[in-house]
């Protein structure tokens, strides 16, 4: 955790946080993505307030909103002034509330798992690339094994084995995060390997700097841009894994709303109530696209060379 914090802090200072923001604002694609992400994050944070507007929550059944076959009554899956996105088939729960509260689950799990993988991956990758030798060889083999591991099977069985008293969301974060770090470690290790040979690293050592100083002060700022970009692109894939687990029924337990489980349930109703699939699916698609767009823009903005002589 500390490593990621330092990464953000160091690079923010070195390259000028304000300049990065200015740069991003000129990048229309990244700017739109940032707004979309901000809207989703705010919606997730203020979900209880927003649902208060229509007086709904994601747990209350509205059987009156359904017809005899259990499908939502009315246009577009029961869209109305009280149920903005319609209602869930069979239960009649408010879909708007489910999507909003689902964003809490998805974003929470996605971001926490990303922080976990990035922290472990940066620590492992940086040290492996810098120190080399046996340590590097062992770490690299572990990374290779992790890549070839049938992680989904492992995750499913693990969630089945662990005692039910262990909080499910935390377990999901740990499991997803655990399988995310090798990718980060490999990228960071590769960058560190090439940076280690550069003269400024030798220069720092020749000035009397210790290994830790070289790692944190010289190498970390140079890989921080990669880390930040990689993290932004990692978040949507983490959200995707969480959705996949929930889709398979081993994610967060019901009735906690989750996009993945909603999508899984909606597959069965796609003929009679297509909008039940469109709302959670669209939300997942939008947030994935936005994080990728922002990551792309950040990569350009964080490179001091790309700012040219303007500054």
């Amino acid at each position: 955790m500390t490593t990621t914090l330092e990464a953000g802090e160091v690079s923010g200072r070195k390259t000028g946080f304000r300049q990065v923001v200015v740069q991003l604002r000129h990048d229309r694609w990244a700017f739109t993505s940032a707004i979309v992400i901000a809207v989703f994050v705010l919606a997730a944070v203020f979900a209880p307030v927003l649902t208060l507007v229509t007086g709904q929550d994601p747990y209350t059944y509205h059987l009156s909103a359904l017809n005899n076959s259990g499908a939502p009554a009315g246009f577009g899956g029961g869209i109305s002034a009280t149920h903005w996105f319609g209602v869930e088939p069979l239960t009649g729960r408010d879909l708007f509330s489910i999507v909003l509260y689902g964003a809490r689950t998805s974003l929470g799990v996605g971001i926490s798992a990303t922080i976990l993988s990035v922290a472990v991956g940066v620590l492992v990758g940086l040290t492996a690339g810098f120190f080399g030798g046996w340590y590097d060889r062992i770490v690299s083999r572990i990374i290779d094994v992790m890549f070839g591991f049938p992680s989904l099977v492992f995750m499913i069985s693990l969630t089945a084995i662990v005692a039910a008293t262990f909080p499910r969301p935390v377990l999901i974060v740990l499991v997803i995060g655990f399988f995310g770090w090798p990718a980060v470690a490999r990228v960071v290790r590769g960058q560190t390997l090439s940076l280690r040979e550069r003269n400024f690293v030798t220069a720092s050592t020749a000035m009397g700097a210790g290994s830790w100083h070289v790692l944190i002060r010289q190498l970390l700022p140079n890989v921080s841009a990669t880390i930040i970009v990689y993290a932004t692109i990692l978040i949507p894939s983490m959200i995707g894994v969480e959705a996949a687990l929930s889709f398979l029924g081993v994610g967060v337990p019901p009735p906690t709303p989750s996009w993945g489980r909603s999508i899984g349930d909606a597959i069965a109703w796609v003929q009679t109530d297509p909008l039940y699939l469109v709302f959670p699916g669209g939300a997942l698609f939008l947030i994935t696209l936005a994080f990728n767009g922002l990551g792309d823009g950040l990569r350009d903005a964080l490179d001091p060379r790309s700012r040219g002589k303007l500054s």
Binding site: R198, N199, A206, M207
Partner: peptide, 28 residues
């Protein structure tokens, strides 16, 4: 050894790679 390195200055062949690209000149 680190104490001794304090008393040695080192100038490299390629100035571009001997300065950290993420540092300002002042920080270097």
């Amino acid at each position: 050894r680190r104490e001794t390195r304090k008393r040695i200055g080192y100038v490299f062949q390629d100035p571009a790679s001997s300065l950290n690209p993420r540092f300002t000149i002042g920080q270097c």
